[in-house]
């Protein structure tokens, strides 16, 4: 018993240090995402330009890129031209959809008018779509296969079209 005490104590210390050491490099703010490989939830929200209802299902059979963003978010603005560029490149093969949430329509319309936009931008007034998709920040981009399966999301802004290319390969097959 007498000799066991220190050994147990040292073992506990070892475990503590190991656990703390392993924690380095992990991001405590990272929110797990489990919808990977699951069917993308359907939605029905309207387009900002013509107020038409848009559903996910109507694009079945084509790969989809879903970008969640808001105008008050700086990185989203920075990412905007990168997405526009990517859309031009993949226009024929994939559907690009922007979903604006946690924002209001006026702001978004003003921003889009000033910065130009091509692919459809949808408006999620009560963030219900964002909640359904397990969004944990802005901007976030989801890649969805032809079969409607989520194949990963990028929870950070794109700074270069190459980053999108790598992801597109996966869903274009």
């Amino acid at each position: 018993m007498k000799r066991l005490g220190p050994i147990i104590a040292l073992a506990v210390i070892g475990l503590l240090i190991f656990v703390l050491f392993k924690a380095f490099g992990t991001d405590p703010h990272e929110v797990p995402f489990l919808l990977n490989g699951k069917a993308a939830p359907n939605f029905k929200i309207k387009r900002l330009d013509n107020d038409q209802e848009v559903t996910l299902d109507q694009f079945k059979g084509r790969p989809i890129v879903l970008n969640f963003w808001a105008t008050w978010c700086g990185p989203c603005k920075a990412e905007h031209p990168v997405l526009e560029y990517a859309w031009k490149k993949y226009e024929k093969d994939a559907v690009f959809l922007g979903i604006v949430f946690e924002d209001n329509e006026q702001n978004t319309k003003r921003f889009l008018a000033e910065n130009g936009w091509t692919f459809p931008q949808l408006f999620d007034p009560k963030s219900t779509v964002a909640v359904d998709y397990g969004v944990s920040g802005v901007p976030e981009t989801y890649f969805i296969t032809r079969e409607g399966i989520i194949q990963g999301k990028v929870a950070a802004p794109f700074s270069h079209p190459m980053q999108i290319d790598a992801r597109m390969k996966g869903i274009l097959q």
């Binding site: 005490g5 220190p6 104590a9 703390l20």
Partner: peptide
């Protein structure tokens, strides 16, 4: 400073256990 601190925690803890033992 995390890693530096971790080393310090380890040293202090081991020091304490050894001292008490």
């Amino acid at each position: 400073i995390g890693p530096t601190f971790l080393v310090f925690i380890a040293v202090v803890l081991v020091f304490c256990v050894l001292l008490l033992t």
